[in-house]
Amino acid sequence: MPELTPDPVHPLTRVLSLGAGVIALYLASPWWLFGWALLIGGVFTRRGNWRGFTRALLGGAVFGGLQALNHRPGVPYWDTALMTTIRFTLMIMGIALIYGRGSWLSMFSAIEHGLKKILGRNKAVGYGVLTMLLGMAFLPRMVEDVRRIRKDQAMRQSLAGTHRFRPLSFLRPVLVEGFLRSDDLAEALWSRGWRPTALPPTSSAGGLDGMIVFAWVMVIGLEVHGWPMWH
């Protein structure tokens, strides 16, 4: 828990790794991607997260199916459909991995700290990070809300004996709940001490961070130069 014990990796390094990882994925050859997929899969299963692994694989398979339908005739399948599928699957899994390992809050605080050091205590930075925080709080809740609302509406229709077709009826409550929640959250965060000009503390970068950044620079640099015969 980075909130209780020092995190060996600086939050900004995690953010940077996320971006660099996406770039590296687009540059890498399919064989490397296949190898990385196995590696990430292995990490997931070693951590006992079979569910996440299976979901990622299923998502990848569905995406693969769509790509297979969409791939352009005359272009080698390997270059278009399959490769894009593998890349997207890896991206999703990589993001899930970082999401699971790091703390979003620490990452956002580090971004805010870094930007405010450069731009001064700019309110726009504070509001930008607040929006990111609210977005992170919304996404998981929204999915849960839709599930509950649909269940409730089905229950009420069953009780009233009506079967009116209302496919988008969950939208209003989800949106209203979203607006209200953003109000509630923004108010709560204000009372909890958030101010747009505040400078949240962040950890200092260590040797490990330097090594990770260096590794990414090497990986992308080598990929760009096509060495050693990656393409």
Binding site: L105, D184, L185, A188, R192, P200, P201
Partner: peptide
């Protein structure tokens, strides 16, 4: 309605994060 962190510790650390000057204090 007032929670933003994904885990319990993360959410509790939110206030101290804005009101402290060092990470040690937050922890």
């Amino acid at each position: 309605g007032q929670m933003v962190g994904t885990t319990v510790a993360e959410d509790i650390s939110l206030g101290p994060r804005w009101l402290s000057s060092t990470l040690d204090q937050v922890r």
